[in-house]
Amino acid sequence: MRKLTVIFLLSIPAIALSGAGSKAVGTAVQERIIVGMATDANGLGDGSFNDGVYAGLKKAEDEGLIEIRLIEPASMTDYVPNLSGLAEDGAELIFAVGFLFYDALLEVAPNYPDTMFAGIDLFYDSPMPPSNVLGINWKEHESGYLAGVVAGLMTREYANRSDKLNDENVIGAVLGMDIPPVERYFVGFTEGAKSVNSDIEVLSVVTGTFTDQAKGKEATIALAEQGADIVIQFAGLTGMGIFTAAQEKNILVMGADVDQNHFAPEYTLTSAMKGTTQATYLTTLDFIDGNFKGGGNAVFGLAEDAVGLAPFHDFDFVVPSEVIDAVEQARSDIISGAVDIPQTRDDAGI
């Protein structure tokens, strides 16, 4: 026992000393602007907005413009102290990621008038936010709409172009939870499909989780059994399951948020993209240039080129030019305002 104790005690200074040689923390160049990022309770690795925002900030950091301070909360009660803590640590711009920050941001921002806050996926209209808060939103329904146009055309008119498509006029969607961005995606997807294929049937499953791959897979298979030959996912990590389901049921799938083609190149038709990374990067640049304006919302859509469709990759020769034309038509109609896409199921009447 005594021997163990001695070894144990001896090793403490050894560890302390060796620590001196390891990664230097907190020795960053002082002139750099500190940009804080508070993730929501899911943390990094959600395959969605947290990762997207981080990638945008990372890009700015790699260019030597800023220094990132990241904090992942243990639970939702940490939101307020995390935001105020980042402000106290000297962060000049703070990204609060996820719609659950709605109240926390309103509570913290007035206490730190010199710090700017950007709320990702937050939309403030009543009341308007304080002058140092900017809500950043995407028109997910617009990229969902384009994906819907592709799916609506491919599942019926051009079903003979791929052996993975069947004769039935059915497509499907796997949703994580009924949260606003997911809602916008799904409503846009449905409307897009119906705009080119009015009697199409759009099925959906809400899995109730953003982490359960196996459930995402089963949901996709259940959709496929009802005849859906193109299934899209709006379900974070749960959505990973649709790629394995596509291999099993030999159907086509679509990714969301980023180009997810690499998960299953032979089965992924396209992805409905949301340019979180780009928007974050641009917002950061705006801030550095002194153009950051709070007190309202910034909405990124097709017009800003911040949402859209991923390339078709392997399906370039499968998707006919008529479909590409239809997508382009929809894109210009949306930008010009000729098409107005509802944002909730109630508005859309589905």
Partner: peptide
């Protein structure tokens, strides 16, 4: 209600 309000799930 996520389909109605700005602060869904709160």
């Amino acid at each position: 209600d996520p389909t109605l309000s700005a602060h869904a799930y709160i």
